[in-house]
Nucleic acid binder design. Structure first.
Lengths: 129, 129
DNA sequence: ACGATACTTAAGCAAATGCTTAACCAAAGT
DNA sequence: ACTTTGGTTAAGCATTTGCTTAAGTATCGT
């Protein structure tokens, strides 16, 4: 976990390219060779290898050479790390939305004579139940 | 859903920078102004605004100007899209791993005299139960 | 031994990225 | 009116990215 931020940089950067996502897509269906990986992509083999290096640097893909063929496979734990980061932010946002709901609910309770223009989003999820 | 791939490009590209992730982090705690968003970041305000533009282009953040202050908030659905892409690939990989388990299980059944060197990972999850 | 296959290395290049500073504009506060 | 605040616009610049082509180097099949 040395420099977690840099790891995320490399991950998201790796996923930010359609060719690399296509390669990840392919590798999720099973391990394969470099040239096999290159076939559906409209670019030279060196270009594919460069993309592959980016994927390896990000930890999303691992490769090993046996004879003259390099076999590539994904590292699912890396995929999990990316998923987790996004998930943590999303749930953080949802928690915050709930607190906003609480706030609005308490405001509505304070001036309880006025019409309730701001109903809480999750009525069953108030702060002090 | 016009050009889904480009949307993912912009998303992951936006998340591939630590300053932008910090901004997303902050915005998950609640909406805020540009200058407030800039405070913890060690760079000029124009630089922050440029990052913000990247985030807006990706759909992760939306902003609206009122008077002279621009207020920024995240778009959680965009966050979901990113999460979903990764999740789909990860589960695809897991399905494939299960099929590999099935394959190895059937192989082991065929030459059932030999020692089983490749036990299936999920023994209860064979192809034809 | 010899050619085909599967990469690998290196050099080069156009475009994109991530900043900077300087100058500008308009709403708020006094 | 004048200054401060909050942001915008523009230009410039170093670095990185995403390719290319050309020329290797091993290994495999015959």
């Amino acid at each position: 976990m040395l420099n977690q931020s840099l790891a995320l940089d490399l991950m998201f950067q790796a996923l930010a390219d359609p060719s690399r996502r296509a390669m990840v897509d392919r590798l999720c269906r099973g391990p394969t060779s470099v040239s096999e990986l290159a076939k559906p992509l409209a670019m030279s083999l060196p270009a594919v290898v460069q993309h592959l290096q980016v994927l390896e640097a990000s930890g999303l893909v691992r490769t090993e050479k046996l004879g003259r063929v390099r076999t590539c496979h994904i590292e699912p734990r890396a995929l999990c790390t990316a998923e987790q980061w996004v998930n943590e932010r999303r749930t953080s946002w949802e928690r915050n939305l709930d607190r906003l709901g609480d706030f609005l609910a308490e405001e509505a309770q304070q001036d309880s004579g006025k019409p309730d223009n701001n109903p809480p989003r999750k009525p069953g999820n108030r702060r002090k139940p």
